[in-house]
Every structure is written in structure tokens, then in C-alpha cells.
Computed example of a mutant assay.
Amino acid sequence: MVNEVDARWLLVSVTTAGAASSLRMQVWRKLKGLGALYLQQSVCLLPDRPAVATALAELRERVRTDGGRMRVVHVEIADGGELGELAAEMTAAIDEEYAEVLERLPSFFAELEMESGRGRAVFAEVEESEADLERFRSWVAKIEARDYFRAPRGEEVRAELERAATALAAFESAALERET
């Protein structure tokens, strides 16, 4: 759902010509990590949110220090149709990221099932599975940080992560029973 707050955006323009070659990649990674919607090369939009503005101010300082130029302009999207299209485009990209998580989570469940079937519900497997689940949680947290318009698959991913935590707890209980 798009509201009045969502009408405020940040237009970002970056030039890294003459700067260290690694700067361009660093800037791109940071902007994509924030969920930037590129309009053309080196020009993107982001919703005007406090955390985004802070991250951009830090990035702008780094770009300038490293010999590049970066401008951040506050804009308001007055056209509701355009605003809806921008939000929909960003939401679709986030939904694809959530879909990838949903594609990969079944392997977590399959691994727990396979190890249980082999009678290998042991401490080492619990640790490995905990690390796997933590990687999923970390990945989802990064996606959620740029999910400005609540992509539809977000709730499904959170429910699957909860189901994964429950499955891991059961696996851990089996390992405890086995080893004590």
C-alpha cells in the first residue's frame, strides 16, 4: 500500500570517473543493498526513509573522499500512478528475492530429514543446521531491510523460517535424546 510518506523519494546520481576502480563496485553494492531502483546508469531512486538517508550520507562522504561525486536530491512523486508503478517495480524485485529464499529452504528441511533418517541426529549436525538457519535468517533480514512496500512473499518466508526453527528444535531434541 502506497501512502503520503511513500511520495517522498531520494534521487541519487553518482560519478566515479577518475576515482579508484573499486569505488564503482562498492557504490553499486551499497545502493543495491539499500534496494535502489535504477532509472539509468548511475542514477537511481530510493524511498526517503531515515535509515536510507543516513546510509546515503555515509556513502556520499566515502564517494567524495575516494575521488567521486554523488548527489542526493529529495523529490516528491506527485503522480499517484507513477508512485504506484515505482512501488510495484521495487516490490516485484523484492518478491523475487523472497522467492529465491523459498526455493532454497526445502534443502534445509531435506537435510534434516536425511540426517534423521540416517540416525545422524547428533550435536555436529545440529551445529551445522543452526548455522544454515542463521544464514537464511541473515539473508531474509537483508531483504526485509529494503522491503519498503511489504512484498507479498515476505509473510510466507517468515512463516517458513519459523517452521524451519521448529524443525531444527525437533532435530536438536532428537540429538539430545540420542547422545544422553
Rank of each mutant, 00 (worst) to 15 (best):
V2A: 02
V2Q: 10
N3P: 07
W9A: 06
L11M: 14
S13E: 09
S13P: 01
T15Y: 05
A17H: 12
G18V: 04
G18S: 10
A19Q: 12
S21I: 07
L23W: 12
L23P: 02
M25C: 01
Q26Y: 01
K30N: 08
K30H: 11
G35K: 06
G35P: 03
A36V: 04
Y38N: 00
L46G: 09
R49F: 00
T54K: 10
T54E: 11
A55D: 13
L56F: 07
E58V: 14
E58H: 11
R62K: 14
R62Q: 11
V63N: 03
R64A: 03
R69I: 06
R69L: 10
M70A: 04
V73S: 12
G80R: 13
L86P: 02
L86S: 00
M90G: 04
M90Q: 14
M90T: 00
E100Y: 05
M114W: 11
E115T: 13
R120L: 14
A124H: 06
E125F: 04
E125Q: 12
V126T: 08
D132P: 00
S138V: 09
K142G: 14
Y148K: 02
P152F: 02
G154T: 03
G154A: 15
A159C: 01
A164K: 04
A164I: 09
T166K: 12
T166W: 00
T166C: 00
L168G: 07
A170R: 15
F171H: 06
E177T: 04
E179T: 13
